[in-house]
Design a binder for these strands. Structure first.
Lengths: 153, 153
DNA sequence: TATTGTTATACTCTATAACTATA
DNA sequence: TATAGTTATAGAGTATAACAATA
């Protein structure tokens, strides 16, 4: 033991490497040039959380406030979101999803699921079942991304 | 049954949704502004496949040839890759990873595995084991991204 | 003064179209 | 003619710094 921190376990190293490959795969799979990953992720967040402050959205997406300002401007121009004011604080901008935004998310989800379905068809049925059987574990993993959404602090 | 195609199964729909959330998580987790996802993925490919044609790299990464030209130019400027010629065809550019590129990939992997390790620490041990237990299934899923690398056709 | 958001500016990353050099 | 790659140009997406308006 020559260093003062704990080396990640080999399983974690492999998990990380595999997840990177999956990210690459998904990026290619869902290659919809009409909407970026951040744009889609932002719209999904609005779908779940309802109208949100621009600064909260920036923090949640891990981008700067100016980047979110510009993203919202594009989303507004494309008709997927609208800016509104807050009755209690005139500085605040509340961004909301439009019906067009909702529809786009739905059809995008449908298309991606169809592509994923086609990909899975390429696997032997036993392997496919193993992938689908991993869904509960993946749910746990995905949950790490949205820590304490309900947390009071 | 009113339509002529098969609706994706609910499990596949959920799998797709979860994978999108994981992509978002990984993008935030591995937020290394010094290197883009495509740049990293391209370097990993060079690490695995050895010196490669620029056009093959563009196809493998799902980007245009000009985009790959520019990416390689940036990678060369940063010292992670070098352009070379092909002895048999003067039109061809063969791109190779440098030692600096190799080193960068290694330290980047280490940093990411460490972050992932920290994240997993936040899970109850039983859940963590379930995530690690899903690795074989994830390996199958990741394999769908690099179809028939060995295929003779 | 601190907070919320926008504007100004610059760089990365991407695409399509037009081009050069080689086969 | 076809192929491999580059250059030209334009737009999305990002950051930091400076600003305006409101609290």
């Amino acid at each position: 033991m020559t260093h003062s921190y704990v080396e990640p376990k080999p399983e974690v190293v492999e998990l990380t490497a595999i997840l990177e490959r999956i990210v690459t795969m998904i990026r290619k799979l869902v290659h919809t040039p009409d909407i970026s990953l951040t744009a889609a992720s932002t719209l999904r967040m609005l779908e779940v959380s309802g109208p949100s402050r621009l600064s909260d959205m920036a923090a949640a997406q891990g981008v700067s406030q100016p980047a979110m300002t510009q993203l919202v401007t594009r989303l507004e121009r494309e008709g997927y979101a609208v800016r509104g004011g807050d009755a209690h604080d005139a500085r605040v901008v509340l961004v909301a999803l439009t019906q067009d935004g909702r529809d786009m998310l739905r059809s995008r989800r449908q298309a991606r699921a169809q592509q994923m379905s086609d990909l899975l068809e390429a696997l032997p049925p036993a392997d496919r079942d193993r992938v689908l059987g991993a869904i509960p574990a993946l749910r746990l993993l995905a949950g790490l991304g949205q820590p304490d959404a309900e947390s009071p602090r």
